[in-house]
Design a protein around this nucleic acid. Structure first.
Lengths: 200, 200
DNA sequence: CAGATCACTAAGCGCTTGCTTAGCTTGGCC
DNA sequence: GGCCAAGCTAAGCAAGCGCTTAGTGATCTG
């Protein structure tokens, strides 16, 4: 049922047992949600007894936070790397394409990032919220630049920013790797749609 | 914290106690999610003891199903009523506008409809899924009609349908009645964006 | 090679969960 | 006035929850 999260991306998490717990938790949280996932389920996915989880993480919520924080940082990084090009149009195309493809490719992590915020503690939520604001700001800046140089025509800058983000984010909700197109092609389609949304 | 769901829309649910349980459950599910909501919480929102819930509903899941089914039917109805006008452009504008405004106005029910599908039993999920397919089909038909008469230029019909739906659906995730614009204005903005996405 | 440390398990604690049971009150009806 | 169904509550049950404790074996360190 679940596409097991590739452990390759998580090599910085040491020791290996902690990494197995983390990737197991990602799959479980994405599949059933944080609240419906038991520590026994996470531990058994990592091939351990329930108590072993607490050797590496102080609580189930902390495991969620670690995943959410890493996921948010990865998403922001993807967006920043894609923010390259001479024109606002090129930059927007690159950003929407990369951000959408990331939500498809890593739809398990993305689901945790986008839909499990309410399960975070207030302090952890605040930390993650600053990254979310940076993500929105990145998109809003490109749109603003495009409006300034006349290539984009946008009435409601903040509202349109939200709409562009929605396009990519909602991919995490419905994406099914078995049935749907390749992440890259989806990214290109969505980049095209986003450009048409704002083009002058 | 929660905007209490208007009981006016639910007058067909009898007796009043059953209605109070239903609207209480909507607010609770929207706020914390189905799994994190306890039957004690729902009952206390309705001003009753936990056991009273089972006089009116056989299980917590059944309460969710009733909400989800009614919500899906309402969403489809909104979309069908808005599917009026001479041109595909007018029809799409009306549908996206109404569908978006509904997700903002009724963002509590919409959250349950869009994000709690996994908590439904297989049989109940199947029943709700047929309505979801009808909703997608409605949008895909308008886009198809627009392509046929040359007013729309759409490469990937199915992918673009998903994107148009994502725009409206994702509103339920972020919409905050205190901070954001009126549902109607949001609907008009999004209808405009959707049209630009597909216009020839 | 003793002692400490790390990674782990078996067992289980206190608590909460969805739901049940037994019994009470109320209002309508013959 | 006796009866009954509808709608409710107090109490509680079995199961499962997050997390802790006590102890074990392997590995590293002086």
């Amino acid at each position: 049922m679940s596409a097991i999260t590739s452990p390759l991306v998580w090599e910085h998490v040491q020791p290996a047992a902690a990494r197995r717990l983390l990737t197991g938790a990602i799959d479980a949280f994405a599949e059933r949600g944080f609240q419906a996932t038991t520590t026994r389920d996470i531990a058994s996915r990592a091939g351990m007894s329930p108590a072993a989880l607490y050797v590496h993480y102080p609580s189930k919520e902390r495991l969620l936070f670690e995943i959410s924080l890493y996921g948010h940082r990865a998403a922001l990084e993807i967006l920043s790397e894609a923010d390259a090009g001479d024109s606002p149009a090129d930059r927007l195309r690159g950003m929407v394409s990369a951000f959408t493809a990331w939500h498809a490719e890593h739809h398990t992590i993305a689901r945790v990032v986008q839909y499990e915020l309410a399960a975070l503690s207030p302090e952890h939520l605040a930390e993650v919220a600053t990254i979310r604001r940076a993500i929105s700001a990145k998109v809003e800046n490109v749109l603003g630049d495009g409006v300034s140089d006349g290539t984009f025509a946008v009435d409601d800058l903040h509202g349109t920013t939200l709409a562009v983000l929605s396009l990519s984010i909602d991919v995490a909700r419905w994406y099914d790797p078995v049935r749907r197109a390749a992440p890259r092609e989806l990214g290109q389609l969505y980049a095209d749609l986003a450009l048409r949304m704002v083009a002058a």
